[in-house]
Design a protein around this nucleic acid. Structure first.
Lengths: 262, 262
DNA sequence: CGTATATTTGATATCCTTCAAGGACGGTGG
DNA sequence: CCACCGTCCTTGAAGGATATCAAATATACG
């Protein structure tokens, strides 16, 4: 792979390219393929549900802008938000395995989605092994996030959970250049935060108040920041390893790239 | 791929082959590779911790027999079990991405583990695309399980969670021929169940008692069964779609397959 | 057997939920 | 420009689910 085929990330790169570009030194062809893959787009309004639990799943979605939630409704009628998908995140990358959705997805804000034919995913596997490993990494990372959420719901207090969640969102947004060094713009209502962290709206409200009062958190017109970051991190027991990028194809002594390298 | 290269699953097949064989019509070469990959084995005793949170991860593990838990300890000292790994389950399939463990793993029973060199995983990707898609599916499935656990911890009562968890274990064990039509042998203490479902030991005990009293569950010397299965399923809000196998290589002109491709 | 481990039970404390209602804010239309 | 309405945030009070503490009983194991 000659260096001249290696591509710097252009300023107008999609969040996906921006994200993968952090872990993989992408080639020009790879960037081009990833961008072309996203040409077919759909705009969804806040509140629109575009994946319905149980319905057949025919496409993979990729969030280009906006915030999206994936959720389930229990038999008792409670909604639980499995996760929030941010720009650069895929939804339904597993479409080639599962022919029906086992969750619903709806837009939390007006969003732009790329609609990706399942065959494109197969094509990545066939033609771009390094990208394929990138997708695989995204699936692993998705599991890491869920795993950390399980830890939160199972073993942390309400305030810790919420703060941990905010730190997670901040880190993830930062990885696609959508957050500042100070913080980020929150696009969730307290009810949604509660549905995500297994808490009632009322309790979310009280916990947030307390966090703010204790200077572990600041929210101003939806702008979340952390006045004393290290205290927040330690209070929330936040260890960002679970969100770390992987590194590959640098001088590539070993890792995944092997794959590509032959 | 000529039919004569397609292999029936032998009686002494490893749980891995047994499991993948349910979703993929494996070729003789594939079975051979999968079995050979597992030659390097280690026996671990109940309680042995063989992955330590934070330590470098050099191998992928595959459970051949026994039950294993993956867990984290929070800053507050609480243990939360992220998941239980059963025969046929990989641990650390992501070793090629992550160079250090972000959780610990320990044997719940005396177990036999296959120690797999990371390069073997890369080899699967290079030489056996269909198997590679099988591994990918296992990662997706792992995320599905976590996702369902999150729903449980966030939106179901203690009794529902526990029953749901038992139904999950039963289903998973059945998929590697380690459960009967009646039920399965539980290899967890109530404390471990609590650490897995975010409940105290005492509350696990009381919830189980109540489930038994109401005939939604039976436990006899660790043998778990469901006297009125359909009631149990509906009480626990259990929908086994999240554990479903995928189907592939029907006629298989294409890798991962077709499945979606049209 | 005897000791460690696991289960069971009781009593009390706490976190969190639910129900209820008031207040703030933003958008829309007259 | 203001009145209105919906949505979200905030606060109070009471109840419920689950945790914690403590101790007794049962079970497994060397």
């Amino acid at each position: 792979m000659s260096p001249k085929n290696q591509s710097a990330i252009p300023d107008d790169a999609s969040p996906l390219v921006r994200r993968l570009g952090r872990s993989i030194l992408l080639t020009y062809d790879e960037v081009k393929f990833l961008e072309t893959m996203q040409v077919n787009q759909a705009e969804v309004d806040k509140g629109d549900e575009f994946i319905h639990d149980g319905d057949p799943l025919r496409l993979t979605f990729l969030v280009r802008s906006g915030w999206v939630m994936r959720y389930k409704i229990t038999a008792a009628g409670r909604r639980l938000i499995i996760g929030v998908s941010l720009p650069g995140d895929f939804i339904g990358l597993h479409v080639n395995f599962n022919n029906s959705a086992i969750y619903s997805a709806a837009a939390l804000t007006k969003s732009s989605l790329a609609l990706i034919e399942p065959v494109r995913i197969l094509e990545i596997h066939r033609r771009f092994p390094v990208l394929a490993s990138g997708l695989e990494w995204m699936t692993v990372r998705h599991a890491n996030i869920l795993s950390e959420h399980k830890v939160s719901l199972g073993a942390r207090t309400a305030a810790q959970r919420i703060l941990h969640f905010f730190l997670e969102l901040w880190t993830r947004l930062e990885q696609v250049d959508l957050a500042t060094a100070k913080g980020f713009q929150l696009e969730l209502t307290q009810e949604q935060i509660g549905d995500c962290m297994g808490l009632s709206t009322v309790h979310v409200n009280r916990s947030i108040s307390r966090l703010c009062k204790e200077n572990l958190l600041r929210i101003d017109k939806g702008a979340v920041s952390f006045p004393q970051l290290s205290r927040s991190i330690s209070f929330a027991d936040f260890d960002k390893r679970f969100l770390m990028e992987f590194s590959t194809r640098p001088g590539l002594p070993e890792p995944i790239n092997q794959i590509a390298s032959n």
